[in-house]
Design a protein around this nucleic acid. Structure first.
Length: 271
DNA sequence: CGGACAACCTGGCGGC
DNA sequence: TGCCGCCAGGTTGTCC
């Protein structure tokens, strides 16, 4: 589900509620989501630690604690929200982990498909160390992007979604970026010309920023930290718009399978 | 390095 | 209405 913009919005929404809080309890009805820890040991290690801050790296939510680091990946259907214990939420039906906080509220992790993951490690690098650059950071400039592409012979769309290449781009934003850059998703990375690489670089940053501006895309499962939906889905140009006219040239948008993923593009103006 | 595929899970939807 | 197959915003491991 959530790609970089959605995770960024969740982090921004949770930050005021979590910063400075201390974990006082941990419960889980599906402890398999917790990586490499039996539930009892996980809880024992976590309880008492204070949340110093909240940040994002790629699609990971990173909670810096007084001693360790807690990382959460929402995968396809994960949701994270803070509520009072007596308060019910539409997502509670798929509640998997509940973290009690010292202000009496709860951080709840719900996940219909149970793909989500929770990590507790001394150093965040153990989990996010192999991710590619943050596409919205200052370090990610056009030259860096050009160098990353050098020697890459794979198909451009799956490459964009490779988290070790660039962090945070998923299926929606890959399709939208390629549409904006007018590049056919089937193209091999090493056939892109200089002007096309520049267009793609700017398109990646532009669609991710637009996603954040519109507070994420809510197709089915994504919710902001307060439970409301984002609205970037109202601004899709190709994603989930098969058979509709391309906003640029009017040709019906085509949907194909590429790298095992549904891929939406305009067969006329993406070349 | 790259591509194909299975696994991990549940639920919604279209087709018959 | 009911059942079946397919699809879904992600990642990882295996095999070729």
């Amino acid at each position: 589900m959530p790609e970089l913009p959605e995770v960024e919005i969740v982090v921004r929404g949770l930050r005021p509620d979590l910063t400075g809080r201390r974990v006082v309890s941990v419960e889980s009805t599906w402890p398999r989501l917790i990586v490499d820890w039996p539930l009892e040991a996980f809880a024992a290690r976590l309880i008492g630690q204070q949340i110093a801050g909240l940040r994002r790296r790629g699609k990971y939510i990173i909670c810096d604690l007084s001693d360790d680091t807690l990382l959460i990946h929402l995968k396809m259907t994960g949701r994270l929200y803070v509520v009072a214990p007596e308060e019910s939420n539409e997502s509670d039906r798929w509640l998997r982990v509940v973290f009690g906080l010292d202000d009496g509220r709860e951080l709840r992790f719900s996940d219909l498909r149970k793909f989500g993951r929770v990590y507790l490690v001394p150093d965040a690098g153990q989990v996010v160390g192999k991710l590619g650059p943050e596409p919205l950071s200052d370090e990610f400039d056009l030259e860096v992007f050009c160098n990353l592409l050098k020697g890459r012979q794979g198909t451009i769309k799956p490459l964009l979604m490779n988290q070790g290449f660039v962090a945070g781009i998923g299926n929606i934003y890959a399709d939208e970026a390629l549409w904006q850059a007018q590049i056919d998703p089937h193209r091999k990375a090493d056939t892109l010309k200089e002007a096309e690489i520049a267009r793609l670089y700017h398109a990646i940053r532009s669609v991710l920023q637009a996603g954040i501006y519109h507070e994420g895309a809510s197709i089915n499962w994504y919710r902001k930290a307060d439970g409301s939906t984002g609205e970037y889905q109202e601004h899709f140009n190709v994603y989930d718009r098969q058979h509709e006219p391309c906003p640029r040239c009017g040709t019906p948008i085509r949907k194909v399978k590429l790298g095992q993923r549904g891929t939406h593009y305009c067969p006329t103006c993406q070349v």
